[in-house]
Amino acid sequence: MVQFCDRIGIMLQGKLVEQNEAEAIYKTPQHEYTRKLWASFPSLHGGVLL
């Protein structure tokens, strides 16, 4: 996603809880749910992203 899109919006229970430039969403997530979402991706370097 981050590689492909310019802007990303994060939806939770029908609401757009956060939207921003792709890189900002990945590097400085503001919403708790965005953080949790990143932490659900296993990383190639061990553990999970973020």
């Binding site: 991706f41 296993p42 990383s43 190639l44 370097h45 061990g46 553990g47 999970v48």
Partner: peptide, 8 residues
């Protein structure tokens, strides 16, 4: 086919 999950 997902190497990241293989590492996990």
């Amino acid at each position: 086919h997902d190497i990241a999950t293989a590492r996990y």
